[in-house]
């Protein structure tokens, strides 16, 4: 019983000290070894999942490929249109004497795991700070919640802690996380029209996230006309569980 009491006392002391951030130094040293191990474990898990997903692919594979090919054609057409608009935008900015948008620095980070938080292999030593946005191909994944010297923890958009001011077309609203599995778009006035053709983008309000990052697309509308605000599901375009590299916006 003495061993148990001594060890539980040590555990509680460690728990308390870590909560105060007094163990960040030793933790940084240990992370030098554990971060590569975590990365290897996570990569192995993704590899295994890929093997098993291949086994179930034959069921819906052909239909999905056809859909993707169709979508790809639509996107190619959209891309050309977007390029032309961007060029026009640059010319107009020059002509009107408006400063170009400030360039953001992106810090690449390897994914170490996804439990409640997304753990990434960059930390305070790399210049990561709490509150920074984490993205993948212009899709917002979340914001840095906790930073250790060599790793950081990202609150995902599906986390109940997460609240992001967004815009859908001309409408403004708020996307909140639900039980770590889905996102809900709320606070959209009933007079506004929302549809799945418009992407859900960050509005940049409150300076919590840079504007125009993709949050997802509008799914099923769950509110009724008598509700004060419109409510809808938001479907993420990125599967966080399959990512190996993400970017921290500095």
């Amino acid at each position: 019983m003495r061993t148990f009491i001594t060890l539980i006392f040590f555990s509680l002391v460690i728990f308390f000290l870590d909560g105060r951030g007094l163990l960040d130094g030793p933790k940084g040293i240990v992370q030098t070894v554990t971060v590569p191990v975590q990365y290897s474990l996570y990569s192995a898990k993704l590899g295994l999942e890929e093997v098993f997903s291949f086994l179930t692919f034959w069921k819906s594979g052909e239909k999905r490929i056809k859909n993707l090919e169709q979508k790809n054609l639509e996107l190619l057409a959209g891309e050309n249109k977007a390029k032309a608009t961007e060029e026009e935008n640059i010319i107009l900015r020059k002509q009107l004497g408006v400063n170009p948008k400030p360039a953001t620095r992106l810090l690449p980070a390897t994914v170490l795991g996804t439990l409640r938080y997304l753990e990434i292999g960059v930390g305070g030593n790399d210049g990561v700070a709490e509150g920074m946005a984490v993205i993948y191909l212009n899709n917002l994944l979340g914001r840095v919640e906790k930073v250790t010297p060599k790793a950081s923890f990202v609150v995902l958009l599906s986390d109940p802690q997460s609240k992001v001011p967004v815009k859908v077309g001309s409408a403004r609203g708020l996307v909140s996380g639900q039980f770590n599995s889905s996102m809900v778009l709320d606070h959209i006035a009933q007079t506004e029209e929302i549809s799945d053709t418009n992407p859900v983008l960050t509005s940049g309000e409150g300076e919590s996230f840079p504007p125009d990052l993709v949050v997802g697309k509008v799914g099923k509308i769950t509110s009724v006309e008598t509700d004060l605000f419109q409510k809808a599901e938001v479907i993420s375009l990125v599967d966080v569980n399959k990512l190996t590299t993400v970017f921290v916006v500095q």
């Binding site: 539980i8 509680l12 870590d18 933790k27 240990v30």
Partner: peptide, 17 residues
């Protein structure tokens, strides 16, 4: 605790109990 990014001492306490 380190591998799962938890606060140190969480799983040690659970395991000891």
């Amino acid at each position: 605790d380190i591998l799962f990014g938890r606060r140190l001492g969480t799983l040690t306490t659970i395991y000891l109990l």
